[in-house]
């Protein structure tokens, strides 16, 4: 089984697994810089418009935002547990935990959707579509635009992560992963943790702005 898994360019399975992990970490680093650019935009405009920028984000619901933070952290925890158990060969448990995490991701998206619906109702929309207040002072629209763009981009990552988690859960049940092969499971887990980490920063920046 494991001999088939070894690609010809590698000498040992250990090296091959190390390569897969390192590649994933590098991909995640690259992905983080994608958000890094937006964090720079955020910091730049918040520096330019300290009060107006914050004022624009003020009507975000702290309760919903905090709920989502707890949901994502818990989903991260269940994914970490799942990765832990696949190493011990308890693949059914892993599949269950990953399915649960996918469910948490769904809950996150539903809550996010409720928030978005609220914003649309208030016309707190990005760019030229904004009309929450007449004649907004400079900086307000930028805050709302960034909020939409960054959370929507994060939402896309959540969706991508959910698809991968669900796929791994199904493959775990089919017996593809186990003690003999688990790096792919780990890497999907890593991706989900990245989604969590990005949210850990988005939450104070967009909700805890008092």
């Amino acid at each position: 089984m494991s001999a088939q898994r070894l690609a010809e360019q590698f000498e040992t399975l250990e090296k091959q697994d190390h390569a897969a992990r390192l590649g994933m970490w590098m991909f995640l680093g690259s992905e983080t810089l994608l958000f890094g650019a937006l964090f720079a935009v955020y910091a730049y405009y918040r520096g330019m418009y300290p009060s107006e920028f914050v004022q624009a984000l003020h009507h975000n619901s702290v309760a919903l935002g905090t709920t989502n933070t707890v949901v994502l952290i818990t989903s991260s925890f269940t994914v970490a547990l799942g990765v832990h158990f696949v190493r011990e060969g308890k693949t059914r448990l892993t599949a269950a935990l990953f399915a649960l995490s996918t469910l948490f991701g769904g809950v996150f998206l539903v809550v996010k959707g409720i928030e978005y619906a609220h914003h649309i109702h208030e016309n707190a929309l990005p760019g030229g579509m904004y009309s929450f207040v007449e004649q907004p002072p400079a900086g307000v629209v930028l805050g709302i635009t960034l909020y939409w763009f960054m959370t929507a981009l994060h939402g896309l990552h959540v969706i991508a992560g959910m698809i991968m988690l669900a796929a791994v859960a199904v493959l775990c049940l089919k017996g593809r992963y186990g003690t003999h092969r688990f790096v792919a499971v780990e890497n999907v887990g890593l991706y989900w943790h990245l989604v969590d980490v990005v949210w850990i920063f988005l939450w104070p920046l967009f909700y805890l702005t008092d």
């Binding site: 650019a37 107006e52 930028l142």
Partner: peptide
């Protein structure tokens, strides 16, 4: 990735008017 993001912002701005760099809104 930073270039990708900045050109993505330009592309979205060009098509949908994201206006993140628009002086009219203080950009």
């Amino acid at each position: 990735p930073v270039l990708g993001m900045s050109l993505l912002l330009i592309a979205i701005d060009h098509t949908f008017g994201l206006s993140l760099f628009n002086p009219r809104f203080g950009g």
